[in-house]
Design a protein around this nucleic acid. Structure first.
Length: 469
RNA sequence: GGCGGCGUGGCCGAGUGGUUGAGGCAAGGGCCUGCAAAGCCCUGUACCCGGGUUCGAUUCCCGGCGCCGCCUCCA
């Protein structure tokens, strides 16, 4: 059974679930004011794998991830570029999904936009004021943190220590430096919505409360996001729900940040690489592999060296997939699958190593999403399957190799498709092979160079040449 | 100042109170091979420093050093 570390308690426990094994997963998504960077890529991959594995484990997952399409940053960028803020948000959201698609990240089941929930947010703010936990000032409405029981739970700090460490300047009207805006009164030129407190827009921490509760219900199971959101964002989300007396997330999951040269990558530090840049330069699967190779909560160093490593490792996986296809019996049309029906005669069923591989994989994953060990098991099996192939044991190789590939699929990594070379390439390769057989190696090597110039490599395998990209 | 985390071979990165340190990449040697590529096999003797607990610590405890994150927008 999958156990996940809960940020609030520091203990790894199985996710809570509702009737029908339903699990709601809310992940704080993108603020769309610019192209996503590598850090966003990691975060998306982590929750994509969590969602896939939850489903694989038998949960009925509902994955919700928001788009923050109105926010200071969106407004600032629009102002700086003299554009409409909606246009900025839409453009950035397109870039977001393009990158997600390139990485093979499954779309969340729901993608709520903040701007579609403003009315509900206004109601929430009004309710907070009515309850006396939020107060109005000249520039907005603030939540009084002292009024919230257990404020600091996620930060693991007391109200006092948080207060003493606060760097925020106490405004004239703000009662405590920790108090945060749930409603921002409009300044000239900003987008506004009507409210009992005058025109304005919701504070950032409010939207996730409204959208998660509205789409997943009270006491939903999992709430995730980057480690840098723990405080204050998630703390403040929780504070609002607590203040309202509404059961909120029951379990908090946070992913570690991407670091560059030991320092956190972030837009504000300016040391970021756009995700698209990485995805254009490397096989997108290499980034997924790199991310999964480390524990999801740890900082992760991303750079040309580590990406190159991952890309190289992937080639061995692709090679295995190609080799397996070459030895796969024609009539064997049983698809790869976790629980292929009627699989009595399937090789995997009679090949113990393949079965135990599944067990070790699940064991690793169940231990707080242990993708590093899970991956190690799978890659070890890839090597073993290749070895069996070398030894001519095709049946065993298929049994083990198919399971390895299937498990990689659980992690969202599919072997590269076998691309059929065009006729001109096949013809060139044929001429080269003839030259080789005739012992004319100079000609053969020239032809190989020609093939290379057209982007094709040729490997002389024991059973004949093979073309691939 | 408060809170949290990290320090493992050439690099990345798991993990563990004790005979044989996952996995990946790189490197060297080998099998195969016209060559190359691919694949496979072999090779590495690590755990920041100082104490303590223990029969035994890289793993637990204390202290130190170094690095990082959060306490402000941030995945």
């Amino acid at each position: 059974m999958l156990r996940l570390l809960d940020t609030a308690t520091g203990v790894a426990v199985p996710p809570a679930e509702r009737a029908g094994a339903r699990v709601g997963l809310y992940v704080c998504g993108a603020t769309v004011y610019g192209p996503p960077h590598i850090g966003h890529g990691r975060f998306a991959l982590v929750y994509d794998v969590l969602r896939r594995y939850l489903a694989r484990s038998g949960y009925d997952v509902r994955h919700v991830s928001n788009i923050t399409d109105v926010d200071d940053k969106v407004i600032d960028r629009a102002a700086a570029e003299g554009r409409d803020w909606r246009e900025v948000a839409e453009e950035a959201e397109e870039q977001w999904w393009a990158a997600m698609d390139a990485m093979g990240v499954l779309r969340p089941h729901e993608v709520p936009h903040a701007t579609d929930y403003v009315e509900e947010m206004v109601s929430l703010v009004a309710e907070l004021v009515r309850l006396g936990v939020a107060y109005e000032t000249s520039d907005g409405v603030y939540l009084a943190c002292d009024a919230v029981e257990g404020y600091g739970t996620l930060a693991h700090q007391s109200l006092d220590s948080l207060r003493s460490g606060a760097r925020a300047v106490v405004g004239e009207e703000k009662r405590s430096p920790l108090d945060f805006a749930v409603w921002k009164k409009a300044k000239p030129g900003e987008p506004t919505w009507p409210s009992p407190f005058g025109p304005g827009r919701p504070g950032w921490h409010t939207e996730c409360v409204v959208m998660s509760l509205s789409l997943l219900g009270e006491g939903f199971e999992l709430h995730g996001g980057g480690l840098d959101l723990v405080f204050p964002h998630h703390e403040n989300e929780r504070a609002q729900a607590v203040a309202l007396g509404r059961p909120f997330a029951r379990h908090w999951v946070h992913n570690g940040l991407v670091v560059v040269g030991g320092e956190k990558m972030s837009k504000s530090l300016g040391n970021y690489t756009e995700l698209k840049t990485l995805l254009d330069a490397y096989d997108p699967r290499a980034y997924r592999l790199l991310v999964l190779r480390s524990y999801y909560r740890s900082p992760l160093e991303v750079g040309p060296s580590t990406l190159g490593d991952a890309a190289a490792a992937l080639q061995r996986v692709d090679e295995l997939a190609r080799r397996l296809e070459a030895v796969r019996p024609r009539q064997d049309t049983v698809p790869r699958g976790w629980d292929a029906p009627g699989g009595q005669s399937r090789p995997a069923a009679v090949f113990p190593a393949a079965q135990s591989l599944r067990g070790r994989f699940v064991e690793a994953m169940d231990d707080d999403l242990g993708t590093p060990r899970a991956l190690a098991e799978v890659l070890g099996a890839v090597r073993e399957a290749n070895r069996l192939l070398d030894a001519g044991e095709a049946t065993g190789a298929l049994a083990l190799g198919d399971v390895a590939l299937e498990l990689l699929g659980v992690l969202g990594i599919e072997p590269a498709g076998v691309e059929a070379p065009p006729a001109t390439i096949v013809e060139l390769a044929g001429r080269r092979e003839s030259a080789r057989r005739a012992g004319d190696y100079d000609a053969a090597d020239r032809l190989r160079d020609e093939l290379a110039a057209q982007g094709w490599k040729v490997d002389d395998l024991p059973d004949g040449p093979r073309l691939h990209r």
